[in-house]
Amino acid sequence: MATFYYPSQPIVVILKKDVSRKIKLTIDEDSLVVNEQVLMEALINNSQQFFDILLNQLKLKNYEHELAQIEAIKRCLLNKGHSN
């Protein structure tokens, strides 16, 4: 289970492992059960797009490390997916 606050808002976000590769996503009192792989792919891809914008369009070079971390996470998830 992971709990954090929505960026710049006093809204609690909770991710909780559910049954059979599902994750329960709760944002402020509303919940949704989603496929774990679909959620992870969406988070990773959208994170990469966000940091790509910061780095390439806004020329904020301080975010190169974050993009490298995202690539490492993608490789890890890809390798994990192939081992199942």
Rank of each mutant, 00 (worst) to 15 (best):
Ala2Met: 04
Thr3Val: 10
Phe4His: 02
Phe4Thr: 04
Tyr5Ile: 04
Tyr5Val: 08
Pro7Arg: 10
Pro7Glu: 11
Ser8Val: 10
Gln9Ala: 11
Gln9Arg: 12
Ile11Cys: 02
Ile11Trp: 04
Ile11Phe: 05
Val12Asn: 14
Val12Cys: 10
Val12Met: 13
Val13Ser: 03
Val13Thr: 02
Ile14Cys: 06
Lys16Gly: 03
Lys17Ala: 08
Asp18Asn: 11
Asp18Gly: 05
Val19Arg: 08
Ser20Phe: 10
Ser20Pro: 13
Arg21Asn: 13
Arg21Ile: 03
Lys22Val: 01
Ile23Val: 14
Ile23Asp: 03
Lys24Phe: 04
Thr26Gln: 06
Asp28Ala: 08
Asp28Trp: 07
Asp30Asn: 08
Ser31Trp: 04
Glu36Pro: 02
Glu36Leu: 05
Gln37Leu: 07
Leu39Asn: 04
Met40Lys: 01
Leu43Ser: 00
Asn45Thr: 03
Asn46Asp: 14
Ser47Gln: 12
Ser47Phe: 07
Phe50Thr: 10
Leu54Phe: 12
Leu54Val: 08
Leu55Lys: 00
Leu58His: 14
Lys59Pro: 06
Lys59Asn: 15
Leu60Met: 13
Asn62His: 09
Glu66Leu: 12
Ala68Glu: 06
Gln69Cys: 11
Gln69Ser: 07
Ile70Cys: 11
Ala72Cys: 09
Ile73Met: 07
Ile73Pro: 02
Lys74Ile: 12
Lys74Val: 10
Cys76Phe: 12
Leu77Ala: 12
Leu78His: 09
Leu78Gly: 11
Lys80Ile: 13
His82Cys: 07
Ser83Thr: 06
Ser83Arg: 07
Asn84Phe: 15
